[in-house]
Design a binder for these strands. Structure first.
Lengths: 183, 183
DNA sequence: GGCCGCATGTAATCTGTTACATGATTCT
DNA sequence: AGAATCATGTAACAGATTACATGCGGCC
């Protein structure tokens, strides 16, 4: 019996609703665009609806039906206090594994930058520490290998290089988020 | 109506059988170890059996039952000509997306080094070209962004850094696979 | 008249995870 | 006697993809 915790993608849906109410169709349209979180992952329309219904059942979201002349009825979704708390908690935690950087960290970063640059820089600082720790453990693994373990060495060297690149990116990223947009 | 093609993980199972016959239990044991492909992904025992049965049904594998006094009956698995062809074809192709490097390319590299260094170096050369092409397209994407698209720029810069690190790793990896093990 | 866009989904299928079943032998 | 190892799985569930269902309004 395990308590429920939303998946990455569900947190991203909560992220949309954090700033304002949306309806399912609209969220899916956003995700189709070649910008923002839409670049991070592709979600099918049917899955968006399924996930939103699940979040509603879990109590993270409430729905209000809006009927208008010019369009079909829309299910307007609002974040509950529980949903808001869950989202903010998720948003500020670093991702637990290097392989989660590509999708999960990018999602966090997207919503963090949307809210305030402050949250984004905190997230980056926090994640950099995690990355440094990963680098150290991979380093140790490499050091512990024998000369015969060529594949294993190659594999850990790959991981090392990827994490190293993440760290360099985090540094650059922080600077570019702080500097104002030139006119 | 789409013709069946094994998944990455199924190709890895075929890879085991390419050099010699194995039975399911044995393959799973190998995958549990902290070496070789076992470092690349974790597969549950029940899934190993499920996948092997699927491959048998698809005609990539044939099974012979071996009974002995000292152990329970073993289902010894052999690669069919079709299975061998499918494996070798997969093995020599570069992975189609950067995100497949971590698991799929590593699997290929593992089996390639097991067979001959020649196949491994060919694979590396081939994959390097792919990576260079990815780098160029990401570069173009970055160049096409406006100053306001800060998140998008950050995201593509992340991808750029990851691919760059892959290229550096491929170079180093090739050298270290060629050089003989020092005594 | 027919197709596209809006807006909601359901149903079937596939892949993977978790937990359990079976029955023999070897180890403590 | 009880536990672990060997070797095969099955059953139930969770998540994601694919395809289809529905009904209204506007455009060509």
């Amino acid at each position: 019996m395990k308590s429920y915790s939303p998946l990455t993608i569900e947190y991203a849906l909560l992220g949309f609703l954090y700033q304002q109410p949306w309806y399912g169709y609209e969220i899916h349209q956003q995700l189709l665009g070649n910008a923002g979180v839409g670049l991070v992952w592709r979600v099918k329309q049917s899955q968006v609806y399924a996930l939103l219904n699940k979040l509603e059942q879990q109590g993270y979201i409430t729905a209000v039906l809006e009927t208008g002349d010019a369009y079909p009825p829309r299910k307007i979704l609002h974040l509950t206090p529980a949903g808001e708390a869950a989202f903010l908690d998720w948003l500020q935690k670093p991702v637990p594994q290097a392989r989660k950087m590509r999708q999960e960290f990018m999602s966090k970063l997207y919503f963090a930058t949307q809210i305030t640059p402050m949250i984004a820089t905190d997230l980056i600082t926090c994640q950099r520490q995690k990355c440094q720790a990963w680098l150290a453990t991979v380093q140790e693994k490499i050091a512990s290998l024998t000369a015969e373990q060529r594949f294993e060495r190659a594999l850990y060297q790959f991981r090392y290089g990827q994490i190293e690149a993440m760290l360099q990116w985090l540094d650059r990223c922080e600077q570019e988020l702080i500097t104002p947009i030139p006119v």
